[in-house]
Computed example of a mutant assay.
Amino acid sequence: MPRDPETVRRHAHSGHPLLRREAAVDHALPPELVELLAVDDDLGVRVLLAQNHPHAPAPLLLRSFLEYTGRERAHLITRPNFPTAGLAAFADHEDPEVRALAAGDPGTEPATVERLTRDPDPAVRAALARHPNLPRSRLVELLDDDELGHAAAANPALDSEIIRRLVRNGFRLVGRDQSR
């Protein structure tokens, strides 16, 4: 049942964070209220808006991901407006989920991508094994790695020759020539 727009507006402007949170989950929230709630002082308001509004702005999505560590955190990076440019800046962050954001940045430098395939966290290693900027020599090496082989096989930078060799050899690069 559609919510009364005037009630939603009052809740969005309320001094009580629970009422603002209620407004933040409204999918039909008008742009001016999205803008207002995106900079709310209450983390709960911002996260609920980021999780629920179809047009949650990119800065809100990134801020929410960085500040919120609860349930559904990972869902934030699947939102259509989640930013990609500049995520390489988080490659050295203490939180492995934040470090893994570098995998979503098409501008992450090859040396950083390669370094993160050796990260202490397995999810970071796997995420970066799929990055198209992974240097070819490291990509080929990872294809035979028990842990990261599947992730490396999903790398969009794999050329058709390597893919054919993988299929022919049961998904192992038997007798590979890394110089090719």
Results as ranks from 00 to 15, higher is better:
1 M>K: 13
174 V>I: 15
33 L>K: 01
161 E>D: 14
59 P>I: 10
123 A>F: 15
25 V>N: 00
65 F>R: 01
172 R>P: 01
49 L>Y: 03
36 L>S: 09
5 P>C: 04
20 R>C: 02
88 A>W: 06
7 T>V: 15
35 E>T: 09
17 P>H: 06
169 N>E: 08
117 T>L: 02
155 N>I: 13
143 L>Q: 01
167 V>F: 09
52 N>F: 06
161 E>M: 13
78 T>L: 15
79 R>E: 11
5 P>N: 06
40 D>K: 07
103 A>V: 06
179 S>W: 12
36 L>V: 12
8 V>E: 03
60 L>A: 05
162 I>R: 11
71 R>N: 14
156 P>N: 09
169 N>L: 06
39 V>L: 12
13 H>E: 15
161 E>L: 14
72 E>H: 14
48 L>Q: 11
40 D>T: 13
147 E>H: 00
124 V>I: 07
18 L>R: 13
5 P>F: 05
98 V>L: 03
75 H>K: 14
164 R>T: 13
90 F>D: 03
112 T>G: 04
63 R>T: 13
7 T>K: 10
70 G>K: 06
13 H>C: 12
124 V>R: 02
172 R>G: 05
74 A>V: 12
115 R>S: 03
99 R>Y: 04
34 V>M: 02
123 A>Y: 14
105 D>R: 03
73 R>M: 06
9 R>W: 11
76 L>K: 06
105 D>M: 03
107 G>P: 01
23 A>H: 03
168 R>G: 01
172 R>K: 13
157 A>H: 08
105 D>N: 07
89 A>W: 00
19 L>T: 07
66 L>G: 09
82 F>L: 13
94 E>Q: 10
138 R>W: 02
64 S>Q: 04
34 V>K: 03
79 R>S: 11
41 D>V: 13
74 A>S: 13
144 D>M: 00
85 A>L: 12
153 A>C: 13
119 D>R: 08
19 L>H: 11
111 A>M: 12
